[in-house]
Amino acid sequence: MKTFQGRVIVPGTCTAEALVSHGGFNTLASYQMALQFGDKKVKCGDQSNPDIYKKSMLAKALCLPMTIGSTTGGMVLFGACQMGKQPACLLFSETIDSLAAAGAILGDVWTDVSMPVVDRLGQEFLDYVQTGMTITVKEDGVVEVSGE
């Protein structure tokens, strides 16, 4: 097991399976088809992201550098929270970007969903974590990564 310390954007705790995007996560491209057409597994629809394209994002610990793309991104993430189709948590290696921050904060303030968000975990975090590993997020921004 390896431990990383980040900065808490939205507090909370969770344990979930990691889903890792090494490139920028395009929120609109990833979620739009799944949300519009009721994909129960919430599979990623971003053809430009080979790490997670067609993989289920539901209840996963989404590990990413940052989000990119359209400014509907935050609304899309907020919508995912409202529909109960959000990831278990969002873990950023870099400082969170404005679209992801908006979506995460809207989800926190305007819904009852718990989706912890931690940023500034560092490149070492993203280099180490692999899809399928187990992630535990603590209240103080500590992230534990275990498994092969």
Binding site: T71, M75, F78, S98, A102, L106
Partner: peptide
């Protein structure tokens, strides 16, 4: 202007 998200704006 920052790259605000929908709803945030």
């Amino acid at each position: 202007c920052n790259r605000n998200s929908g709803i945030l704006e």
